[in-house]
Amino acid sequence: MNIVTAVNRALHQEMERDDDTRVLGYDIGMLGGVFRATEGLLDEFGPDRVIDTPLSENGIVGTAVGMAMRDDRPVPEIEFMGFFYPAFGQFMYAVAKMYERTGGDIELPMTIRMPYGGGIKALEYHQESTETFEIHAPGVRVICPSTPYQAKGLLASSIRCDDPVVFMEPKRIYRGFDDPVPTDEYTLPLDEARIVEEGSDVTVLTWGAMVRHAESAAEEVDADVEVIDLVTLSPLDVETILESVKKTGRCVVLHEARRTLGLGAELSALVNEYALDRLKAPVKRATGYDVHFPDNDIEDDYLPDAERAKHAIEAVMSYEF
């Protein structure tokens, strides 16, 4: 399967397993979603469980909150991460805080799916990678798969989770490659990073579409690179991160989001606080630039890639205090 097919299969199996699971969003029914991730669900489960909504992200998320409060397990889709901003009030005031403000009486088992990032030459607002906003909200899990196998298992786990989940889907690689994926249902942990490649010289921390660039860079440098796919951006798998960096003594963070206040800044601080005495070089970030996502004719110059990751790895490998 590719990633978008894996997402579709997970949605289908979870809706088949639990009648309380419903999907909602703009164009998700008859159209099957802009990327066809919900294709076929309307025919299988009907309009009571596959709900085409008006074009109102605030309304989509607010409606999903109400559904979750009545014991449904809604899976709202935001067509693109850049369209999530109108719903940010609902996200901060209700989704992130409902459990705490009710003293644990009300849980919100909802999974907000949203394609994120660049790489498809789309229009303005369609290319955002602002996961930092969601990560900064306590009470919400933020998950990002990088393979079809992960996408299917993590989405199933997210839908079954009693916490609200933001499920980031890297649309740049939706159909980029196929991997073996079990046809039966299965789940994956929502709090564990994945060691993609083991190494001894330098740790590369990354997630989503950037994982494949990190793997490519690891093959091109004269170093034994350990590639860590974070998978869960909140809460972080701190133990796996620190164990790796303490072993290699060097750390590179590769992410698509803008540099300033991107998750790479938090990861750098984490390493400095708890592994400074093991470092052989300062933490290096390879990221997007501190500008708005550019027009599609120059987006290739904006997006981090294997070459930029390679330069960062070489920089920490050659550093001398």
Rank of each mutant, 00 (worst) to 15 (best):
I3Q: 04
I3P: 00
V7L: 10
V7N: 02
R9T: 14
A10K: 00
R22L: 15
D27V: 11
I28V: 15
I28Q: 07
G29P: 03
G33E: 09
V34R: 01
T38P: 08
T38L: 04
E39D: 13
P47W: 11
R49E: 08
R49N: 12
T53R: 02
P54L: 03
L55V: 15
E57T: 04
A64S: 15
A64P: 08
A68Q: 05
A68C: 05
R70V: 15
F80S: 05
F83C: 06
F83V: 11
Y85R: 05
A87P: 09
Q90C: 03
Y93I: 03
Y93C: 05
A96D: 03
K97G: 00
E100N: 03
T102G: 00
G104I: 08
M110Y: 03
T111L: 00
T111N: 00
T111E: 02
I112M: 04
I112K: 00
M114H: 00
P115W: 12
I120Y: 12
L123A: 15
H126D: 09
S129P: 09
S129R: 06
F133S: 07
G139E: 01
V142P: 06
I143Y: 12
I143N: 02
C144A: 14
C144W: 06
P145H: 12
P145W: 13
P145Q: 10
Y149S: 02
K152M: 02
G153A: 09
L154K: 08
S158I: 04
S158E: 06
I159N: 01
F167N: 03
P170K: 03
K171C: 07
Y174H: 04
D179C: 03
P180G: 00
T183M: 06
D184C: 00
E185W: 10
T187G: 07
T187I: 12
L188I: 12
R194W: 10
I195P: 02
I195C: 12
G199K: 00
V202N: 07
V202P: 05
T203D: 07
V204L: 02
V204N: 05
L205S: 06
W207Q: 12
G208L: 09
M210V: 14
R212T: 14
H213C: 13
H213M: 11
S216Q: 15
E220N: 09
V221G: 08
D222Y: 11
V227D: 08
V227F: 05
I228G: 03
T232M: 02
P235V: 06
T240H: 05
V245L: 10
A257L: 13
R258S: 15
A265W: 12
A269Y: 15
V271Y: 11
E273D: 15
D277W: 13
D277T: 13
L279M: 13
K284H: 15
V291L: 11
F293G: 04
N296L: 09
N296G: 00
D297A: 08
D301Y: 14
L303A: 06
E307F: 11
A309W: 10
H311F: 14
A312N: 12
E314N: 13
E314Q: 14
A315E: 15
V316N: 10
M317W: 14
M317R: 06
Y319K: 10
